Computed example of a mutant assay.
Amino acid sequence: MRLPIALFNGTVATTNGLYSIEDIGFKEAKQLVSKHGFESAIGHQATADILSELLQQDVQMNRIQFKQEVGQFAVVLKLNKRPPEGIILNKEEMEKIGFSLKLMKRIK
C-alpha cells in the first residue's frame, strides 16, 4: 500500500513509535509530494499558503487528528526560531523568521 505524504507544521510524533528526521530541499519535497500525493495536517493558514507555493499544490489548512503510519513519510515546515507564546504568524512574518523543510519517517 502506498501512503500519501503527510504535511505538518511542526516535527511532532503523532503516535508512539520510532521516527527519523532529516533535512529535505524544496525541490525534493515537491517531487516527493507530486509522486505520492499528500494529506494535509497543517493547522495554520500561513503555513498552508507557504507550502502551496513551495510544493506547487493546493495545500489546505486541515486541523485534523492525524496518525502517521509505519513507513509513512511526512514533510514538515520548521521555523528557524520559535515564536512567542500565543502569537499566530502570518506568511510575511514566517518568511522573515525563515524556515526549512524536514523529512520525517515513522520507522516503527
Rank of each mutant, 00 (worst) to 15 (best):
K30G: 02
N9W: 04
Q72P: 01
S20R: 14
I64S: 09
E69G: 04
Q31R: 13
L55Y: 12
D23Y: 14
V75C: 06
E53R: 14
S100D: 10
T15S: 13
H36F: 13
G37L: 09
G25K: 13
V70G: 02
S20E: 09
L55C: 02
G17L: 06
R63Y: 04
V75E: 05
I21W: 07
F26E: 15
L3E: 13
F66K: 11
A6F: 08
G86Y: 06
A46Y: 00
L51W: 09
A48M: 02
F26S: 08
L101N: 10
K35W: 10
N62E: 06
K78R: 14
L7Y: 01
A6R: 11
K91T: 04
Q31L: 11
N90F: 06
Q68L: 12
I42G: 04
K91L: 04
F8C: 01
E95T: 00
V12H: 04
Q72G: 01
R82C: 11
S52Q: 06
F99R: 08
D49M: 04
G43T: 09
V70S: 04
F38S: 00
F8R: 05
F38L: 07
N16D: 12
Q57S: 03
T14G: 09
K30T: 10
M104C: 02
A48L: 01
K91R: 14
S34Y: 12
A46G: 02
E39M: 07
N90I: 04
N80A: 05
E53W: 04
K78S: 05
L77A: 06
N9H: 12
T47H: 12
A13R: 07
L79T: 03
V12I: 06
I42T: 01
N90S: 11
R63D: 13
Q56A: 13
Q60T: 12
V12W: 02
K35L: 12
K105P: 00
Q57I: 02
Q72W: 03
S52V: 00
A46K: 05
P83C: 03
F8A: 05
L3D: 14
Q68P: 01
Q68W: 09
I87W: 13
K81D: 09
L7M: 07
V70N: 11
K78Y: 02
G10D: 09
G43S: 06
G71H: 00
S34V: 09
A41L: 06
G71P: 00
I107C: 08
L51C: 01
M61V: 12
F38P: 03
F73N: 15
E92D: 13
I24Q: 08
E92P: 03
P84C: 01
R63I: 12
K67Q: 11
K81W: 08
M1I: 14
K102S: 02
D23L: 14
A13P: 10
L55H: 11
L32E: 03
N90D: 15
S34G: 13
Q65T: 13
A46R: 04
E93L: 02
E28Y: 07
G10I: 05
I21D: 08
R63T: 14
I64R: 15
L51Q: 01
V33T: 09
L55T: 05
I42Y: 00
I87V: 15
A6T: 07
L7P: 01
F38N: 00
A29P: 13
R82I: 12
I21S: 10
K27Y: 05
L54P: 10
K78V: 11
E93Q: 15
K96L: 09
F8Y: 13
R63F: 01
E28R: 14
I87M: 15
K108A: 10
E92A: 12
